[in-house]
C-alpha cells in the first residue's frame, strides 16, 4: 500500500473509531424507534378495526370503509420513523463542527498531534470528511435494512385484506423524505449528495477560518457563506437578471449550477488547504 494512502486510511480509521460510539448510539436509537413504529402502528390499527367491528356489529369491510386500509406509507409518516432520521441528520450536522472543535477544546490539545503528523495536512481534512460521509451512508443503509424488515413485519401483523395494495417502493417513492434520501432516483440521490458534499466543504472551511482568525474568522466565515450562497443561487436568479426566463435552457442552468457548486467546493478546498498549511493556530 502506498505510504500516503496508508497514512490516510490510518487517520480515517482513527477518526471513525473516535466517532463509532456516537454512530452506534444513533443506529440503536433508529432501530429501536423504528421497531416500535413497525409494531405499534399495525397493532393499533388492527385493534381499532376489531373494536369498531365489535362495538358497531359491522363487517370487516364496513370497518375498513370507515378507517381505510393500512399502508406502509402510513407507518413511514410517523415520528417513529421520521424522528430518528431527523435526529441522525441534525446529530451529524453538529458532529461536522464537533469533529474539528474537539481537537482544541477542553484539557486536550490534540490539534498539536494532528497538525504535527508527517502527512499532508489535507489528510486531516479529508479523513474527517470521509468519516462524516461513511456515517451518513451507514445510517441510510441501516434505515434501508430497517424499512425492508418493517415492511415485512407490517405485512405479517396485518391481514392482507386490511392492507392497501402498495408496493414497498411505491410507499418510499411517495414519501418526499425517502424519495430524496434513498437511492430511488439515481439523479436525485446524486444531486442531494452533491449538494451535501459542497455544504460540508463550506462548513469545514468556515470552521478552519474561525480556527485561524478567531473572531475575525467568524466574520470572514459568515461573509464566505454568503458569497457561496450567492454563487450557488446565481444560476437560479440568472433568468431574472437577464430579464428572460427562456434565454437559458434548464439543462444549461443545471450545468451552470453544477459548475457553481464545483467552484464553491474547489475554492473551499483551496482555502482550507491554505489555512491548514499557513494560518491554522493551535
Amino acid at each position: 500500500m502506498k505510504k500516503t494512502l496508508k497514512a490516510f486510511l490510518n487517520l480515517t480509521a482513527f477518526e471513525l473509531d473516535r466517532l463509532s460510539k456516537f454512530l452506534y448510539a444513533l443506529i440503536g436509537v433508529t432501530l429501536v424507534a423504528n421497531m416500535i413504529g413497525y409494531v405499534l402502528i399495525p397493532l393499533r390499527f388492527t385493534d381499532r378495526i376489531n373494536a369498531y367491528m365489535v362495538q358497531n356489529s359491522v363487517t370487516e369491510q364496513q370497518a375498513l370503509e370507515v378507517y381505510g386500509e393500512l399502508s406502509f406509507y402510513d407507518i413511514l409518516q410517523t415520528s417513529w420513523i421520521l424522528g430518528p432520521i431527523a435526529l441522525g441528520v441534525s446529530a451529524l450536522l453538529l458532529y461536522a463542527f464537533f469533529i474539528w472543535y474537539r481537537e482544541w477544546l477542553g484539557k486536550n490539545t490534540f490539534a498539536y498531534r494532528l497538525l504535527m503528523l508527517p502527512i499532508p495536512r489535507m489528510h486531516i481534512f479529508y479523513s474527517k470528511f470521509v468519516v462524516i460521509y461513511v456515517s451518513i451512508f451507514t445510517l441510510i443503509a441501516i434505515q434501508i435494512v430497517s424499512l425492508i424488515f418493517g415492511f415485512n413485519l407490517m405485512s405479517a401483523l396485518v391481514p392482507s385484506e386490511w392492507l392497501r395494495h402498495m408496493s414497498f417502493f411505491s410507499a418510499l417513492s411517495m414519501h418526499p423524505f425517502f424519495y430524496y434520501i434513498l437511492p430511488l432516483e439515481p439523479w436525485i440521490f446524486l444531486a442531494i449528495n452533491g449538494i451535501g458534499l459542497v455544504f460540508l466543504h463550506v462548513t469545514f472551511t468556515v470552521i478552519l477560518l474561525e480556527r485561524s482568525f478567531s473572531v475575525k474568522g467568524i466574520l470572514i466565515g459568515i461573509t464566505y457563506v454568503l458569497i457561496t450562497l450567492l454563487i450557488a443561487l446565481f444560476p437560479a436568479f440568472l433568468p431574472e437578471l437577464i430579464g428572460n426566463h427562456y434565454y437559458l435552457y434548464n439543462s444549461e442552468l443545471l450545468i451552470l449550477t453544477v459548475l457553481s457548486l464545483g467552484l464553491i467546493s474547489f475554492t473551499s478546498i483551496m482555502i482550507s488547504r491554505f489555512l491548514l498549511n499557513k494560518k491554522i493556530t493551535v
Partner: peptide
C-alpha cells in the same frame, strides 16, 4: 513541510494524546 515532522519533534506543555 509535513515530511519534516520526521526530523523535528515538539513536546508542548499540554497533553497531546487522547485522554
Amino acid at each position: 513541510t509535513s515530511s519534516l515532522y520526521n526530523k523535528i519533534a515538539f513536546i508542548p506543555d499540554a497533553a497531546i494524546s487522547l485522554p
